[in-house]
Computed example of a mutant assay.
Amino acid sequence: MIPIPGHARVWIATGHTDMRKGAASLGLLIQEGFGGKPNSGDLHVFRGRRGDLLKIIWHDGLGASLYSKRLERGKFTWPSAKDGVISISASALACLLEGIDWRNPQYTFRPELAG
């Protein structure tokens, strides 16, 4: 799990992004395309066209880190807007990374007996 600081915000770039981009190219997209600051300490999340790959860029004050996650089955739940960014909570990001619909998480059954 990514160590998310308490003051950090999580930004999702709606639509799809070219997943061949690295940390520098994504940082430039944050700065010029969305008007954000890539070195602010916030997490910026991008999704590919197929929907099964995520990239997260995060600057911790010393340097930028680039995380990626690919789902074996299914797709990441993503906002329907074509361009722009939205902010979500750290717990919604945790659901997103697990492949859970972060907009409407459902309680799952837990067995009460061991046998």
Rank of each mutant, 00 (worst) to 15 (best):
residue 1 M to N: 09
residue 1 M to H: 08
residue 1 M to D: 09
residue 2 I to S: 03
residue 2 I to P: 02
residue 2 I to W: 02
residue 3 P to D: 14
residue 5 P to H: 12
residue 6 G to N: 12
residue 6 G to V: 00
residue 7 H to D: 09
residue 8 A to V: 01
residue 8 A to H: 03
residue 8 A to I: 01
residue 8 A to M: 01
residue 10 V to Q: 02
residue 11 W to C: 01
residue 13 A to R: 10
residue 13 A to W: 03
residue 13 A to T: 07
residue 15 G to F: 13
residue 15 G to M: 09
residue 16 H to F: 15
residue 16 H to W: 15
residue 16 H to N: 13
residue 17 T to L: 13
residue 17 T to E: 14
residue 20 R to F: 10
residue 20 R to Q: 05
residue 22 G to L: 04
residue 23 A to C: 13
residue 24 A to G: 06
residue 25 S to C: 02
residue 26 L to I: 07
residue 27 G to Q: 08
residue 28 L to G: 07
residue 28 L to Q: 14
residue 29 L to M: 14
residue 30 I to N: 13
residue 31 Q to V: 05
residue 32 E to M: 06
residue 32 E to R: 15
residue 32 E to H: 14
residue 34 F to D: 02
residue 34 F to H: 15
residue 34 F to R: 02
residue 34 F to Y: 15
residue 35 G to S: 10
residue 35 G to H: 10
residue 35 G to F: 11
residue 37 K to I: 01
residue 38 P to H: 14
residue 39 N to T: 14
residue 43 L to N: 06
residue 43 L to A: 04
residue 43 L to I: 08
residue 44 H to C: 08
residue 44 H to G: 01
residue 44 H to N: 10
residue 45 V to S: 03
residue 47 R to P: 01
residue 47 R to G: 01
residue 48 G to L: 11
residue 48 G to K: 10
residue 49 R to N: 04
residue 50 R to E: 10
residue 50 R to T: 05
residue 51 G to D: 07
residue 51 G to I: 07
residue 52 D to I: 01
residue 55 K to I: 06
residue 57 I to E: 02
residue 57 I to M: 11
residue 59 H to R: 05
residue 59 H to Q: 06
residue 60 D to G: 07
residue 61 G to S: 04
residue 61 G to M: 11
residue 61 G to L: 13
residue 61 G to A: 13
residue 64 A to T: 14
residue 65 S to I: 00
residue 65 S to K: 12
residue 67 Y to I: 03
residue 68 S to A: 11
residue 68 S to Q: 15
residue 69 K to W: 04
residue 69 K to L: 03
residue 70 R to G: 04
residue 71 L to T: 05
residue 74 G to F: 10
residue 75 K to L: 04
residue 76 F to Y: 09
residue 76 F to L: 07
residue 77 T to P: 00
residue 77 T to L: 01
residue 78 W to V: 02
residue 78 W to M: 05
residue 78 W to T: 00
residue 79 P to L: 06
residue 81 A to G: 05
residue 82 K to N: 13
residue 83 D to A: 14
residue 83 D to L: 13
residue 84 G to V: 11
residue 84 G to K: 10
residue 84 G to A: 05
residue 85 V to Y: 12
residue 86 I to H: 03
residue 86 I to M: 09
residue 87 S to A: 14
residue 87 S to P: 03
residue 87 S to I: 10
residue 88 I to Q: 08
residue 88 I to T: 11
residue 89 S to V: 08
residue 91 S to A: 15
residue 92 A to Y: 01
residue 93 L to I: 08
residue 93 L to M: 15
residue 93 L to S: 12
residue 94 A to M: 07
residue 94 A to Q: 14
residue 95 C to E: 10
residue 95 C to V: 02
residue 96 L to N: 07
residue 97 L to Q: 12
residue 97 L to K: 09
residue 100 I to S: 00
residue 101 D to S: 03
residue 102 W to I: 03
residue 103 R to Y: 00
residue 103 R to T: 06
residue 104 N to T: 04
residue 104 N to V: 04
residue 104 N to A: 06
residue 106 Q to L: 07
residue 107 Y to M: 12
residue 108 T to S: 10
residue 108 T to P: 00
residue 108 T to F: 04
residue 109 F to K: 08
residue 109 F to S: 03
residue 109 F to W: 12
residue 110 R to M: 13
residue 111 P to T: 00
residue 115 G to Y: 15
